[in-house]
Structures are given as structure tokens and as C-alpha cells.
Simulated scan of single mutants.
Amino acid sequence: MAGRPRTVMERAYSEIKKKVMTLQLAPGSVIDDLGLSEMLGISRTPAREALFRLVSEGLVVSDPDRRGFFVKPLDIQDLSSLFEAHMVSARAIGRLVAVRCNAAGIVKLRKAESKVIRAIEHARPEEVASSNAELHRLEASLAGNGYLANLACSIHDHGQRLGYLAFGGATAWDTLEQHFIEVQKDHSELIDAYENHDPDAAEGIAGRHVLLFRNRIFNFLTDDTAGSINLGGDILPSMQLSRSNLE
């Protein structure tokens, strides 16, 4: 019985995080922890513990004055800092993986790559975003540097929210064909560079891949589907996000 509370908290954490990542809990929205606990069929305590864990990961913000929680919004400065950190970490990880990755690691990367390909083929935005993030978290773990891996996991958590939105969650799928061709090309060539133990090539491709993702996000923010975004303030909360216009 001693392990049960932790199991309940972990389930609550996974469920709430999924809602954040797929924008069922929209950026900037208030989180009703009591309502969440009732929906999940658990007590309020593990729900709050899960929310505090998400606070520590930067996906949820705690408001001590009102003793409440809300989903962290994204603004221009957040995006700029996110991509700056993403570029630095991706290039460093690329070099380290090329030097340190063994044959078993390459097999794992190819398997993770195939999950991204299947998600793209099936046109499933949530799976595209999650499998892409999973591939890059694996990549970070294979670099053999725990500090970089922790940084990369945080970056890909925040990037996964953006990825869901820009990889079809609120975008016509048929407009993404060329983007996904380039995504798959980058993934394949990056893993080839790892297999060939070529750190210069790996660093270059990793940087190119970050730019591809960054450009997709900014293209999304300036196209017609995001025309109501107020770029002078919060980006995502100013969009009238709902399940109806994400499906």
C-alpha cells in the first residue's frame, strides 16, 4: 500500500500533462485542481502534487495569492529564449552523440524515428509532437551528459506544446507535406551522422533541424489561422483555442 499514493500521483501527472501538451488546458487558462481531481477519480492531494511537479517543470504556474494554478502562457520573449537554448543544446548534443553513440543506441534511434514517420503517415498531430519529442529526448540521453539531457527534456516539453499546435492541431494537414519531408530528411541524416561518428555533420544537421522547427512555428504564428494573435503580448492565450477548432 505504501507505493499507491505515488502511483496515483504519477497517473494524475501524466493525464494533466497530456492535457497541457494537447492544449485541452489552453496556455494561460486557470486550472481547477478540484475539478481535475473529480474528473480523474482521485483525491485532491495527488492532483495538487502532480500540478506542483508541473510547476517545477515550468509548464504550470502557481499563484500563491489565490492558491491556484494556471497553464504557463508563451510570449515572444519565451519563444526567443526557448529557441536560443534549443539551438545551443541541440548542437552540443549532436556532437556528443556522434562521438559516444554505439550500435545499440543507433538501433534505438532508428526505432524512435520510425514512430515519428508512422505518426506523420497517419496524420495524427498529438502523436507527431510526442514521438518527435521522444526521439530528441532519447538523443539527449545518448549524449552521456545528464545536465544537457535535463535541459533538453525541459526544452522538448515546452516545444511539444508548440509542436502539437503547429503540426496539425490547428493547421490544415495538407499544408504540412513539405515540412514533414524536411523533418524526416533531417532525422535520417542526423542518425546517419551519428552512425558514422561524424560530429561536424551532426552539429550542422542538428542546428538546421532547430531552424526548421523555429521557422515552422513562426510561419504558423503569421499565417491566416493565427491572424488574431497579439504579438505584443501573450501569443497563445490570445488565440481562442478550443477543442472545436483544434479537431
Rank of each mutant, 00 (worst) to 15 (best):
R6M: 07
R6I: 04
T7M: 13
M9I: 04
E10H: 10
Y13N: 00
S14K: 12
E15R: 07
E15L: 04
I16W: 00
K19P: 01
K19F: 00
K19E: 03
V20G: 04
V20N: 05
Q24C: 08
P27D: 03
G35S: 10
G41S: 05
I42P: 05
I42M: 07
R44E: 01
P46Y: 00
A47C: 13
A50N: 06
F52H: 15
F52C: 00
V55G: 00
V55E: 00
E57S: 05
G58W: 03
L59G: 09
L59P: 13
V60S: 02
V61N: 00
S62W: 00
D63A: 06
G68W: 00
F70K: 14
F70T: 05
V71R: 08
K72N: 02
P73A: 08
L74E: 12
D75N: 13
Q77F: 05
Q77L: 09
L82D: 09
F83T: 09
F83K: 15
A85Y: 05
A85P: 04
H86G: 15
A92G: 09
I93Y: 03
R95P: 04
L96M: 11
L96T: 02
V99E: 13
V99I: 12
C101H: 02
A103R: 13
A104W: 00
I106R: 03
I106W: 01
V107E: 02
E113T: 06
V116M: 12
V116H: 06
I117R: 14
I117K: 13
R118S: 09
R118W: 03
I120L: 08
E121K: 13
A123H: 15
S131I: 01
N132V: 02
N132G: 06
R137C: 06
L138Q: 10
N145E: 07
N145C: 08
L148M: 13
L151N: 08
S154C: 06
I155Y: 05
I155C: 11
R161F: 00
L162I: 10
L165G: 07
L165W: 12
A166W: 01
F167C: 09
T171H: 15
T171S: 13
T171R: 15
T171D: 03
D174S: 15
Q178S: 14
Q178V: 14
H179L: 13
I181Q: 15
V183Y: 02
H187G: 02
H187Q: 11
I191S: 01
E195G: 05
E195N: 04
H197C: 13
A201W: 10
A206F: 06
G207Y: 03
H209K: 10
L211S: 13
F213W: 04
R216W: 05
I217C: 08
I217W: 02
I217E: 01
F220G: 11
F220Q: 04
L221Q: 08
L221A: 11
T222M: 07
T222Q: 04
D224I: 10
T225F: 12
G227E: 12
I229T: 14
N230T: 08
N230D: 07
N230G: 05
G233F: 07
G233I: 07
D234H: 15
D234R: 15
I235M: 11
I235N: 00
L236E: 01
P237Q: 10
S242T: 07
N245F: 06
L246E: 02
E247T: 07
